[in-house]
Design a protein around this nucleic acid. Sequence first.
DNA 1: TAAAAAATTTAGACTTGTCTAAAAAATATT
DNA 2: AATATTTTTTAGACAAGTCTAAATTTTTTA
Lengths: 216, 216
Amino acid sequence: MNTLAEENYLKSIYHLSLNAESVSTNQLAALLSTSAASVTDMLKKLADKQLINYARYQGVSLTPAGEKIALHIIRKHRLWEFFLVEKLDFKWDEVHEMAEEMEHISSTELIDRLDKFMGYPKYDPHGDPIPDSKGNFKVHELKPVSMVAVNECGIISGVRDHSPAFLQYLEKQQLTIGKKIQVAEIIEYDHSMILQAGNNRIHISREVANNLLIAV
Amino acid sequence: MNTLAEENYLKSIYHLSLNAESVSTNQLAALLSTSAASVTDMLKKLADKQLINYARYQGVSLTPAGEKIALHIIRKHRLWEFFLVEKLDFKWDEVHEMAEEMEHISSTELIDRLDKFMGYPKYDPHGDPIPDSKGNFKVHELKPVSMVAVNECGIISGVRDHSPAFLQYLEKQQLTIGKKIQVAEIIEYDHSMILQAGNNRIHISREVANNLLIAV
DNA sequence: TAAAAAATTTAGACTTGTCTAAAAAATATT
DNA sequence: AATATTTTTTAGACAAGTCTAAATTTTTTA
Ligand SMILES: [Mn+2]
Ligand SMILES: [Mn+2]
Ligand SMILES: [Mn+2]
Ligand SMILES: [Mn+2]
């Protein structure tokens, strides 16, 4: 099988690939908090194993085999996050680091039984889709609140920033997954927004609106 | 913190220490399926960290700090085994290898919440005691069935051999943890025994009797 | 108690994954 | 198009953990 380091690289390549065809050495170095030289070393290794398409200076993408592994790690990560929140009562801002370790537990049988134990959840605590045992998942069409017009409604369904600081802020404003909101007003000056959620009016900055995703 | 390899060494030293004052390099090499030379290297490292008492050629024992870490790993191992059997319906012979990985998940908060989630179990699926969050546990007084006299009764409460083969054999004979049995007969010739369990008479070899533990 | 056997340690090497510094290639700027 | 800047790769080094083979120490046996 693959080492922990290899798994983390494959997962990172997958995540970065969502925003672009090909992923650069520096992007990976930044995401993995490592040096570009280390990334190059690992890319050679993953290319040897046929898990990535790689040519010097050309950037990198996952092969089907690499993508399959990446999706399996992501499945494990999100299922463990769901477990931690739903069964062990952790908050959504507390689970990422733990899941970062747990995603490397190797047994597939274990993760399939965990999935069953929790009733085959479709989304993790942050609204991200959980791939099934075959790697399939549905992405729901989301857009940042910042793109929503005045008076439009939607359900909070995801975040772009997974940092504890942002998640804690949303929790405090009661802007959590599943909540129905309406854009009440847009302040032209700084592009901040006032949201109506039930009886509450919540004023959020442009930055927050950019990182909060809703289904309309 | 400590590496995965260090944790496995500390746990092995703890287990071997139960049968003797001091643990030898070769005992560790055998248990960890590694070379004696590798063991010596690691012992130097653990001694530097003050986790073991070690002098060349003299064998090794845990310091209080080392024992505390060992007990914490064992706590995690046994709680995850309990989880796998009680919540995910694995059989008692299937969980050891998975727990061998899971015991290295670092979060203490996680393991304390898992403990709570399962109702603070005192024994793992093999009858071994689970240390509490302070490292305390009660060992119940057990003896091998081979030491039990004819007509004496007892409750099956543990095993000396944790191999899947032995556990599967016991399962098949319905000799599982918690079952009440009586020694019906001892065959002098080969020291095999006939056990009475409810309406069943079960004939077990001397070797099996040696590895099956009961509370009398 | 001296030789033989067993246990343990040391020496030297290898792999994995990382690093910094320097070289090379690609891209952007004048 | 030539030069400057950025990106990426290579070179060389290091720590962790492992190995085999050889040396050393302890224990057993004669
Ligand atoms: Mn990870
Ligand atoms: Mn998540
Ligand atoms: Mn382990
Ligand atoms: Mn056990």
